[in-house]
Each structure stands twice: as structure tokens, then as C-alpha cells.
Design a protein around this nucleic acid. Structure first.
Length: 573
RNA sequence: UGGGGCGUGGCGUAACGGUAGCGCCCGGGUCUUUGGAACCCGUGGUCCAGGUUCGAAUCCUGGCGCCCCAGCCA
């Protein structure tokens, strides 16, 4: 039975991650007394691009597992390929991880900090007869490697003496040879069914300045060589990575064994996170940005952390999402609605409610005194009484949402219609008496309504009920604003289905609404601040926003029961 | 056709030989000064075939399906 502390509900505390197979391995390691009971992980991004939701998952797992076990997680930039990396990303990546809510203390490391130690390890490998300098060209190495079904052939340089290998390797370092002319290879097994074990390249010559080490080096270690040894140098115990590195684990272990590293770190692979309706491949993201399909790396439609930050996603929501989708080895695609649910859950508790009319329709309250003004006390967040109340001005001329009025309402449409009475949130009951239309177009341009003074505050002494409560703004007080409505970037769950991802772009992923009217006071809010626009959804102040020109991003809509009913009605026809 | 992984409701994820549970989505309802939130109810699942066992999602065998690997990328 359950004797080892497994809880039936699997509710382990700590990193917020539910129980998972990695935690099981750690539990077993601790039970066996391995690593002195330590748990030490690392997040190893290559500084060659922006972090996205997939990285967020890795961050949550790497830092979360450490946290859950009272351990530490290092931030290590895996900067072993100077031709692809840029210091610009080093800053951006740190900012994104901090924003997500994780802290690496003073453990900011770079694989490039270890270049000298790594080089010494390489010489040691040569001295042990486990590595050799190979003069084959890149094309020849490929030919000699064999294929998935045929074994490879041994390089003619495979059996050079230790002395010759050492001499050649030192001269590689000294810069005596041109790029691509020679490499250092592990001497393993050219017939291995695992292609990674067919004498993999450990060092290549690249006369390229490195963003941190400058021109100190003209040979650079490969990922396969640098990674296990960097882990070992840092005292990492559990090196968590994604499934595609599973085939590299034998090589990871081979290097650690060949160099007789005591208490070698353990590589454990888990499935990367895939999200529906979006792309996370570096190539595709870059194409979207560079070819102008979106407005930049921080476009709120992108799944980059900078994009989600600009959109207004709370970092807690992203963490919650990564935690609740679990840690497994199963390839899966998570529906974006699950992410959106997390965003709503966090914002419902946190976001102040305000009224904003996105598509204004003027309403004149004919029996309300001209020039009069009164203020109503409205709660800032019914989920959180501590959020307090605010005073909202009411006057004779107000604006309501165009969608909240229908001249000829279908069944189950509860909002305003000719002769119908509704409540204005926090204010009065009004009844629509007259519809004013543009004589040329026939468009409704104004409603003339009467109010019931007895309904002050939103209730009447006779207790009669209305079926709808509408949000509104006072014409004299409201502030104009631009509102950017975002929708899924792709129409299909899988952007790659059919004619390729560009063909599936959602042409309506961004709708810019101008002439919106929001409650006064919002002009004083700093970018990033989140609100619930009553009955619409959650919105944040965009960095483009100024006191004079307010700009809001829709983070996510509220669930819309009427939209659902309307959809069913349309479908039934 | 070599090797490495993975198959549980529509989508995720639990179960550690003993009642297939949870979240999302979906459907219905209660409540509501947000058609929000909350709450209640519901539909629906162990890839297939054998085997072991009192008992199998779980162990074994064999299929089938999907993913990854032939960079001097990570």
C-alpha cells in the first residue's frame, strides 16, 4: 500500500506542481541518500531569441521542482555558439524570468565562463584515449556517420596517438587552422544504433568573436560536450530537459563517466508544452515579426513572454497554467482555453471593475433635469470588498453599448428595446421611449428614455425586477479611448494544418476600436495596469497609452452567455 | 526498414495490482445590481489482441498508431 508518503490526491506542496514522475525520481534519490539529499536544477536558455510560453513551462518546472524540494535552480546561459547569440537576449531573458516570478539569487552563470575548464576536460579526454582530432570535412563526417538503418564507418583519423591529438587540439586552440578544417570528436562507437554515439563532435573551430569572451577562443564546445560538464561544474543534481534530448542521454552519461565525475548529475526529460492556436517555433515567430504579420516581438497576440506581458496577462496566471497542465512524457497540445481560464481566474480576484463603452450609443434621459449631476457609489470588485468603492457621475446624457439595444429583440434578448425597462449599473432604471434614426441611413443614433427616480441606486421600493443591467458612462465625464481587441492569432487549433501556418492566420486577430468611452480616472493609470471592463472582459493599459490618448488591450473576454445563445439561435436557423 | 519515447473522456492530467478521480471545454439548472463570478447537476474514457492474477489502466507477450534522432544548432 502507500507507505512511502504518496498522497492519494497527489497534492504535493512547494513549487505548485502536482505530483509527477520527476518528483518520484527525486523522492527515490533522496530515499537512497543520493546527492546528500540535495536537489539542484538549472534553466539553460541559449541567448538567441525571446522566451515564450514553452520556455515558461520549462522555467516553472526547473524552478518549481527545486523550490518544492528546498533546492536551488541556477540560471545558466548556454552560450556555446557565438554566431547565433546576442547579448541583447541575455537582458531580455532575465527580465522575462523575473517577471514570471522566479529568482536565481547570485547564481547567474554562463557556459562561456567554463570555457577554460571545459577545454581542460577535453584534453583529459584525449589523454584518456577517449577523444581525437578528426580532419574529415563536414560533408565527409556526414557520409561516415551512416544512416538511421546503416552503421557508420570509422574516421581514418580515429587512431591518432594521444600526443598527436594533444598537439593538434592545442594548435586548434592556438588558431592555426581555418574554420571547419578539424574537430575534436569523442571516440565511442561508429556502429551504435544511436547516432549520437557515433563519435560525436565535441569542439569545432570557429573564428568568431564571442559576446562575452571576445576573441579569446576560436574553438567552441558543442552543446553535447558543454552541457553535462557545465551541470557537473555547478553541482546540478537533476538536469531537466525536453524529450528530444532523450537520445542524447547516453552521451551525457558517457562523458560524465569517461571523466569520472563523482556523483554525476542525472538528465531527466519531459514533454515540452504545446499550445493550440499559436506557434512557438523560433523560425515561425521570427517570420511573423519580420514580415510584419504582427507588430514586434512584444505584440500582444504572440505567445512570447514579452507579448503576454504587454497584453496584460498576470504572471501568476501563466504559472498556474504551467503547473496545472502537469509534467509528463506524453506529447500533447493544450487548448488555449485552459490558459484563458487561468487568466480569468486570477484577474477575477484582482482586477478593479470599471465601466467602458466600446461602441457608444447616445441615450438622453428626457425626464432628468438638464445640467444636473449626481454621483453613485459603485463597488470596485464584488469579489473583493477590500477593493472598496468609487463614485461614478451620472447626468442627463449618457452612452450605452450599441449591442445593448435592439429595436426588434429576438427571444432571450434581455437588454434594452423599445418600451422595455432595464437597470443602469449602480444608477437608475430607465425605459426606452423613442428611437432616433439617421434619416439617410436609417441607423439608430440616439435613444430617448425616461428614468424612474424611485429606482435610485438600482432598486425600486415596489421590488419589481428588470432582466438586464447595463453599463454606461456619463457623456460629460467619459474619456475617449482606443481599445485593441485581440483574438487568437490562428484560426485553426493547429496552425500548420492545411496550407501552412501563414494561410491559417486569423485576419481578425486584432480589431482596433476608436471612439470608445471609458470612466474618468483611467487616464492616470500606468501601463500594464489591469481592469475588468464590466460585461466585456479584462483589459490592460498599453504602453502606447498617454494621458491624452488612452489605449487599452483586451487581455481576455468575459464568458458571454448571450453570445452563446445568439450562436445557437443562428445555428438553429 | 536502426534506435529512443509515448498511447486514459473532445483537450490536459491522476491512479504505483483493488470503486477509473480532477481541471478545461461542452450541455442543463440555481443565484445574481456584470447574461461575469460562484454553486449544483449531467454527457463522455483506459489503442487492439492474447496472457498472468481472485482481481489489470497498471505486470507479461504480440500487434497498431503517433512523436523524436542522420548540424561542426541547442
Amino acid at each position: 500500500m502507500v507507505s512511502d508518503g504518496h498522497k492519494p490526491d497527489n497534492g504535493r506542496s512547494g513549487g505548485g506542481l502536482p505530483g509527477n514522475f520527476i518528483q518520484d525520481i527525486i523522492d527515490e534519490d533522496r530515499r537512497a541518500g543520493r546527492y546528500g539529499g540535495r536537489v539542484h536544477t538549472r534553466f539553460p536558455p541559449e541567448p538567441n531569441g525571446y522566451l515564450h510560453i514553452g520556455h515558461a513551462k520549462a522555467i516553472v518546472v526547473d524552478f518549481g521542482i527545486a523550490q518544492a524540494n528546498g533546492g536551488l535552480c541556477n540560471l545558466r546561459f548556454d552560450d556555446t555558439n557565438p554566431s547565433k547569440e546576442d547579448p541583447e537576449y541575455v537582458e531580455a531573458i532575465q527580465r522575462d524570468i523575473r517577471w514570471l516570478g522566479y529568482d536565481w539569487g547570485d547564481r547567474l552563470y554562463f557556459a562561456s565562463d567554463y570555457f577554460e575548464q571545459l577545454y581542460q576536460y577535453a584534453e583529459e579526454l584525449i589523454k584518456r584515449g577517449k577523444a581525437y582530432v578528426c580532419d574529415l570535412s563536414p560533408e565527409e563526417i556526414r557520409e561516415y556517420r551512416g544512416t538511421l538503418t546503416e552503421p557508420g564507418r570509422e574516421s581514418p583519423y580515429r587512431n591518432r596517438s594521444v600526443e598527436e591529438n594533444l598537439d593538434l587540439f592545442r594548435r586548434m586552440r592556438a588558431g592555426e587552422f581555418p574554420d571547419g578544417s578539424r574537430v575534436l570528436r569523442a571516440k565511442i562507437d561508429m556502429r551504435s544504433p544511436n547516432i549520437n554515439m557515433r563519435d560525436p563532435v565535441l569542439y569545432r573551430i570557429q573564428h568568431t568573436a564571442h559576446h562575452r569572451t571576445g576573441d579569446t577562443w576560436c574553438i567552441y564546445p558543442t552543446y553535447d560536450f558543454a552541457h553535462p560538464l557545465s551541470d557537473a561544474i555547478e553541482g546540478v543534481t537533476h538536469s531537466l530537459c525536453t524529450l528530444e534530448f532523450e537520445d542524447h542521454r547516453p552521451l551525457y552519461n558517457w562523458l560524465l563517466e569517461a571523466l569520472e565525475i563523482p556523483e554525476p548529475p542525472k538528465q531527466i526529460e519531459f514533454a515540452r508544452l504545446n499550445l493550440s492556436h499559436t506557434v512557438t517555433s523560433k523560425r515561425k515567430l521570427r517570420q511573423l515579426v519580420e514580415e510584419g504579420y504582427v507588430r514586434g516581438w512584444d505584440d500582444p497576440r504572440l505567445p512570447t513572454l514579452s507579448g503576454m506581458r504587454r497584453r496584460g496577462y498576470p504572471p501568476e496566471a501563466i504559472r498556474m497554467f504551467c503547473e496545472q497542465t502537469g509534467v509528463t512524457k506524453t506529447n500533447s497540445v493544450i487548448h488555449i482555453s485552459q490558459l484563458e481560464h487561468c487568466v480569468r481566474e486570477v484577474l477575477n480576484r484582482k482586477a478593479r471593475r470599471v465601466m467602458a463603452v466600446l461602441r457608444p450609443l447616445k441615450v438622453v434621459i428626457t425626464n432628468y433635469p438638464e445640467g444636473a449631476m449626481e454621483e453613485f457609489e459603485v463597488e470596485n470588485n464584488p469579489e473583493d470588498p477590500a477593493a472598496g468603492t468609487r463614485r461614478v457621475p451620472f447626468t442627463r446624457e449618457i452612452y450605452i453599448e450599441r449591442d445593448d439595444f435592439l429595436e426588434d429583440p429576438p427571444p432571450k434578448f434581455f437588454r434594452l428595446a423599445p418600451g422595455r425597462e432595464v437597470r443602469l449599473k449602480g444608477a437608475y432604471y430607465i425605459t426606452c421611449q423613442e428611437v432616433v434614426k439617421d434619416p439617410d441611413t436609417g441607423d439608430v443614433i440616439e435613444l430617448r428614455c425616461t428614468y424612474d427616480p424611485a429606482s435610485r441606486g438600482g432598486e425600486t421600493p415596489d421590488g419589481r425586477r428588470v432582466k438586464a443591467t447595463l453599463h454606461w458612462v456619463s457623456a460629460a465625464h467619459a474619456r475617449p479611448a482606443e481599445v485593441r481587441l485581440y483574438d487568437h492569432l490562428f484560426l485553426t487549433e493547429d496552425p500548420d494544418e492545411g496550407g501552412g501556418f501563414l494561410a491559417n492566420l486569423n485576419p481578425e486577430s486584432l480589431k482596433v476600436l476608436t471612439g470608445c468611452l471609458v470612466e474618468a480616472g483611467l487616464e492616470d493609470c500606468e501601463p500594464g495596469r489591469q481592469f475588468q471592463f464590466l460585461r466585456h472582459g479584462y483589459f490592460s493599459v498599453d504602453p502606447d497609452s498617454t494621458q491624452k490618448r488612452l489605449v487599452f488591450n483586451r487581455i481576455v473576454s468575459l464568458k458571454d452567455a448571450w453570445a452563446k445563445i445568439r450562436g445557437q439561435q443562428v445555428k438553429a436557423r
